Amino acid sequence: MITLPPHLEIHDDRFAALVHPMSQLEVIAEGFTWTEGPVWFGDHDCLLFSDIPSQRIMRWSEQDGVSVFRSGSGFNNGNTRDRQGRLVGCRHGMRDVVRTEIDGSLTVLADRFDGKRLNSPNDVVVSSDGAVWFTDPTYGIISNFEGFRSDPEQSGCNVFRMSPGGELSAVVTDFSQPNGLCFSPDEKTLYIAESGSSHDESVPSVIRRFAVEGGDLRDTGIFAEIDDGLPDGMRCDVMGNLWSSAADGVHCFDSEGTRLGKILVPQVVSNLCFGGRDGHRMFITATTSVYRVFVDVRGAEPWTLGKQ
């Protein structure tokens, strides 16, 4: 019988092929306030992540360790890369989605809808056609901890799509607090986390699934339920499995929503991404720290890896 390390919990035999019994859960950075938004830059061999309340985007690399990538980040939360390799982030303070150009300048992609300020964009993905999809809960305006307390101008907490031409549309409008989102590898499905239980216990801690039909979404129901805490950031791997944050770690589901197993983490997990030089490392942001663990599958976002 193979003895598993304490950070691995197998619920389905298929999970054993996605992890490894000799893997280690390493702390690679610590001492932050609330870490979020990890994104791997393979062409620079580094990880960027947000320390939201400290208004910093941090950089980590094997060679250089931890440094500040950007101070005064405007309570930046979720991050991703577009197909040109540029950083795209969500700023609670400015209540916008912003892109970092190759020369380091910033371009605001979206900050208003129907002439009113957005709530506080939270997480973001870019599809292969260049459209930008993001969630807009109120976490950045309900207190001064990770934004600026303010009354919402939007009538709800929506999921938005910004077309390649810059047109902004609300594609889902019935979430309590939409949070993390990610595409399936074929981009036919968009998964969106419902994290409204953070402030309302009656809201189920679920991941919802939507069929992508051009620039629109069709609700196909609840994909999975998180049994400890709530879902936040998440990613898909190349096999179509979805890996979601939770209070006790990272939960892995197959494409039908069956829980395969968990990577247990001693702090509440906010987000995760795949990366590393070989693409087989999962980076996990969890409360005050960032963790790294080997996984035997790559993420479904090959453009994050850069040159191999």
Score class of each variant (00 low, 15 high):
Glu26Pro: 07
Ser120Tyr: 07
Met282Phe: 04
Thr35Lys: 01
Ile263Val: 14
Ser61Gly: 07
Pro152Lys: 15
Asp174Pro: 01
Phe175Glu: 03
Pro231Ser: 03
Val39His: 02
Ile222Gln: 14
Leu109Ile: 13
Asp13Lys: 15
Lys116Asp: 01
Thr33Leu: 06
His251Asp: 10
Ala131Met: 10
Thr3Gly: 02
Asp96Phe: 01
His280Ile: 00
Gly276Phe: 09
Ser289Leu: 05
Leu118Val: 06
Gly37Tyr: 04
Gly229Met: 06
Arg99Gly: 08
Ala16Trp: 00
Leu109Phe: 01
Leu190Ser: 01
Gly147Trp: 00
Ser184Thr: 08
Thr3Tyr: 08
Val212His: 00
Gln177Arg: 15
Phe183Ala: 12
Gly72Ala: 03
Leu8Asn: 09
Gly166Arg: 11
Val98Leu: 07
Gly140Val: 04
Phe160Asp: 03
Ser54Tyr: 00
Ser23Asn: 06
Thr220Asp: 10
Gly156Asp: 04
Asp64Cys: 13
Asp278Cys: 08
Asn158Trp: 04
Arg56Gly: 03
Met239Ala: 11
Asp82His: 12
Lys188Glu: 02
Asn76Arg: 08
Gly299Lys: 00
Gly93Phe: 03
Trp243Cys: 09
Gly115Asn: 09
Val108His: 05
Val295Ala: 14
Gly115Ala: 10
Asp123Cys: 12
Glu225Leu: 13
Val19His: 01
Asp296Gln: 14
Cys157Asn: 15
Thr107Gln: 11
Gly156Leu: 09
Ile28Tyr: 12
Leu106Phe: 09
Gly165His: 10
Gly42Phe: 03
Asn79Pro: 11
Val212Ser: 01
Ser245Val: 08
Asn76Tyr: 05
Val290Ile: 08
Leu4Cys: 10
Leu305Lys: 07
Leu87Gln: 05
Ile28Leu: 11
Phe134Glu: 02
Val108Trp: 00
Arg218Gly: 05
Val27Ile: 13
Val265Thr: 07
